[in-house]
């Protein structure tokens, strides 16, 4: 009797937990977590830079870029804006792109390369939209400087 009750209780508790776990608000996870934290973000950004330097529309901007440094700064920045435990220590967006005369079309080309990379890394569309939503307001500071 006692054993049966115990088993029932344990099973009941297990069932309850199994039911409740998926109900824990997913929103509590930051975009940083959902993108796979630093390893996930790094893969997306390194692939993005790979697409950029092959992208005839904007590759020329990066002809003399220090690619490993740029990747490091990008990872810190995206980690930070998506709610991760990083600090961005690079230049301000306006300062980083000063004198480059980047156009809105160039900016959109970079966003397309980011989308390409996120598709390659199978980032779900809702996460793609949220990340692009965080970067879109940088159009002003980055372009026509």
């Amino acid at each position: 009797m006692h054993t049966v009750r115990r088993i029932t209780m344990v099973l009941g508790a297990a069932l309850l937990i199994a039911v409740l776990i998926p109900c824990r608000p997913a929103a509590a996870a930051t975009l940083y977590d959902q993108l796979g934290q630093k390893p996930g973000i790094t893969k997306v950004l390194v692939d993005m830079v790979g697409f950029i330097v092959d992208d005839g529309r904007i590759a020329h901007y990066f002809a003399h870029a220090d690619v490993p440094h740029l990747e490091g700064e990008l990872v810190d920045q995206v980690c930070y804006v998506t709610g991760g435990p990083c600090t961005y220590t690079g230049k301000s967006m306006a300062a980083a792109h000063q004198g480059m005369h980047i156009t809105e079309a160039d900016f959109n080309a970079l966003v397309e390369d980011l989308e390409k990379s996120m598709n390659k890394n199978e980032v779900p569309i809702p996460l793609q939209n949220r990340l692009i939503g965080l970067l879109a307001p940088l159009l002003g500071p980055v372009t026509y400087k």
Binding site: P124, I125, P126, L127, N129, R130, I132, G133, A136
Partner: peptide, 10 residues
């Protein structure tokens, strides 16, 4: 346009 504004959809 709200990027990601409808449960992650634009």
């Amino acid at each position: 346009v709200f990027l990601g504004g409808a449960g992650g959809l634009n």
